[in-house]
C-alpha cells in the first residue's frame, strides 16, 4: 500500500508538476500556464516539497526532528538488494538527492523558467524520471510487493 501510494505520488510530481508544463510530452511545445498554482507563482516550491515528502517517506524521516528513522531504505538494506553491482538502498537515496539538486537549479517561478531556461527544467525532469525505475520496478520486485494501483482486471493463469 505504502509503496503503491509513494509511486502514484511520485508519478504526479514527474508528469503533472514538471513534465506537462515543460513540454516533454508534446514534442517541445511548452505549456508554462499549465504549472501547478500558476497565479501564486509557488509551483516550484510545491514541486520541491512534494519531492522532499517522497524522499522523507523513503528514508523514514521524522518530520519534527528531521532525523532519519526506519524507512523503506532499511528494508532494502535488510534484503541487501543490489542493482548492477550497486547497493539499491543507497542508489535510491543518491538519486533523490540528484533530483532535488537539479530542481534547485531551476529559478522560481517555474512558469518563468520554462519560458526562459527550459533546459534546466527538462534536466530536473530527467533526474526525477531516473528514480522511477528504482522505486516502481526494482524496490517492489526485491521486496516482493506487487504494484496494484494499476488495477488487475480479469484472471491470470
Amino acid at each position: 500500500m505504502l509503496i503503491n501510494n509513494l509511486n502514484e505520488h511520485y508519478e504526479i510530481i514527474k508528469r503533472d508538476k514538471i513534465g506537462i508544463p515543460s513540454g516533454v510530452t508534446t514534442l517541445g511545445i511548452t505549456f508554462p500556464e499549465k504549472v501547478e498554482a500558476y497565479y501564486s507563482g509557488r509551483s516550484l516550491a510545491l514541486a520541491e516539497a512534494a519531492l522532499k515528502a517522497a524522499e522523507g517517506l523513503y528514508l523514514g524521516r521524522n518530520s519534527q526532528s528531521g532525523a532519519d528513522g526506519p524507512g523503506l531504505d532499511d528494508y532494502l538494506q535488510e534484503v541487501n538488494a543490489t542493482k548492477e553491482g550497486q547497493n539499491l538502498s543507497s542508489l535510491i537515496k543518491t538519486q533523490f538527492q540528484k533530483a532535488l539538486d537539479a530542481l534547485s537549479l531551476v529559478q522560481a517561478p517555474l512558469s518563468g523558467a520554462i519560458e526562459g531556461n527550459n533546459e534546466r527544467v527538462v534536466n530536473a525532469y530527467n533526474e526525477i524520471t531516473r528514480q522511477l525505475v528504482n522505486i516502481k520496478t526494482d524496490m517492489p520486485s526485491v521486496l516482493c510487493v506487487s504494484i496494484t494501483y494499476v488495477d488487475n482486471a480479469s484472471d491470470s493463469d
Partner: peptide, 28 residues
C-alpha cells in the same frame, strides 16, 4: 513487472516527446 517509456522523435525539427501511455492504453 516492467515500465516502458516511449519517446517520439521528429527528425525534421529535432524535437522529442515522451509519450503518456495512459492517454492510449488502459492500466491493464
Amino acid at each position: 513487472t516492467g515500465q516502458a517509456t516511449f519517446f517520439v522523435h521528429d527528425p525534421t525539427t529535432g524535437h522529442s516527446a515522451e509519450v503518456e501511455n495512459r492517454s492510449y492504453l488502459t492500466a491493464y
